[in-house]
Design a protein around this nucleic acid. Sequence first.
DNA 1: CCATTAAATGCACTTCTGTTGCACCATCTA
DNA 2: TAGATGGTGCAACAGAAGTGCATTTAATGG
Lengths: 138, 138
Amino acid sequence: MTEVEKTLDNKSVRPTAMRILIYKFMASKNTAVALTDIENAFDKAERTTLYRTLKTFEEKGIVHQIDDGTNISKFALCEPGCNCEIDQDLHLHFHCGQCDKTVCLTEHKIPQINLPQGYIAEDVNLVIKGICDSCNDH
Amino acid sequence: MTEVEKTLDNKSVRPTAMRILIYKFMASKNTAVALTDIENAFDKAERTTLYRTLKTFEEKGIVHQIDDGTNISKFALCEPGCNCEIDQDLHLHFHCGQCDKTVCLTEHKIPQINLPQGYIAEDVNLVIKGICDSCNDH
DNA sequence: CCATTAAATGCACTTCTGTTGCACCATCTA
DNA sequence: TAGATGGTGCAACAGAAGTGCATTTAATGG
């Protein structure tokens, strides 16, 4: 059993060939990926399979979905310290308008926000748009 | 010249009949609206016109686009103090998962965030999801 | 006031993402 | 080995975003 298989198994996700491939692909990227990105990375990839795989991954806490304002859902592997579900530990995301890549800034936590009376927060999404360090170099 | 016409004119937007209607509709709502919302509000509304009108409005600083995580673009009128373009003055948005409405919390500003070396922020988007005060009452 | 020009609108159509239903295949278990 | 469960592939659809082009509407200059 490989590392990846163990990881999936730990999260109660059956480590099928496709899932392992998808996981490895995402692990090889340091940016959040769209469904289409994965689809294009493999010759014979089925949209539906990817769609449902990512959904499963998300439910089991293997990846988290990112909404970076492009109206295209992105996904990124959860790192060991990534407690997506717990309000207090949400990191923020950065979307580069030049290379169109979205990255997790895991070390940057979202500060506590006080809401008006009567509002209950369940989830927080903070995306900063701008120029990333790679694009900034040029 | 009515108030609305003056407002549009101030922003260098020609106050056509359709634009005035759209503006009034948005002003009558205290929530952000989707293109489809406007389309459904009027009998004879053309999606393309709405689409381009909102785009014009946005360019001229009359409305700001909100990405509330539903993957449907929402728009809200900019209030007098709404400096959408200036980093320092961005307010946050709240999306209620129950009534599916998105509101601007104009009095709640987004705190300053320190980015890693090399990253340049141009825009910030902060959306809190949860239950709004109206839904919370019941 | 009319003619010219530019802007706004309406219609048709395309593209892309997200989503579902159904059939088939793989895997696990009794 | 048979049956159940879950994963995958194919086809199709829905909804939003976006584009091109023809037509109408509004502004401007003579």
